[in-house]
Amino acid sequence: MSSDLSINGLSVNYGPVEALYDVSFDVPRGQIAALVGSNGAGKSTVLKTICGLVAPSGGEIRVGGEIVTPRPGDALKLGVAMSPEGRRLFPRLSVEENLLMGAYTVSDGAASRDMLSRVFGYFPRLKERRRQMAGSLSGGEQQMAAIGRALMAQPKLLLLDEPSLGIAPIIVAELGKIITEINRDLGMTVLLVEQNANMALSLAETGIVLETGRVTMSGSGRELLASPEIRAAYLGI
């Protein structure tokens, strides 16, 4: 099976602190994969490194077979878009302008308009609030806008960093459903980073567990959800 994302022996240091050590995993094309682990395990660092926001000290990242260099914007060219941790919308741009920023490098206007109407289809609330400043949205709406913005880049690989963070459980369930729909309808590969292991693993076909910068387990989402270690460590059961 071909992989959309292939990470091989990735190491990242923040000064003397080792954030990732020899991390390797693949995300097969068209799948939803979940990267789970506790706070500080290095999950966000993996995504930032893929997007070129953090430079690795070793190893390589391939997207669709091509090596990604650590420059912001490079991953975008290879079809990677990220919804960053904490949503990071442009607060004084309107909701619609935020979405359009996702399509900043998309030159095909018709394709962008098409994607915009799809995003409004997934998240009707964004359409209602399209003229409102993004900073005035609720947490859940902001998360929808952040996911929508990433979709607007028309990526092959969608990276979602902690979409459930600080959001009401009922909205988390709704987001989970929409992520599955996006994956199915648009054929987008999704890499989901979550502390909420329950939500992430129940959506994902592949699960990877990260602990203090190392991959400690991987398997299908269902397997991991059923494993006693995972249940004890992350699900509090």
Binding site: F90, L100, A153
Partner: peptide, 20 residues
């Protein structure tokens, strides 16, 4: 589009760079 990019840059340089 240029102006939107410039305003986005003013608000969050890193994310603006992320989107090209």
């Amino acid at each position: 589009r240029f102006g939107r990019g410039l305003r986005a840059l003013v608000q969050d340089q890193q994310v603006a760079a992320l989107y090209g």
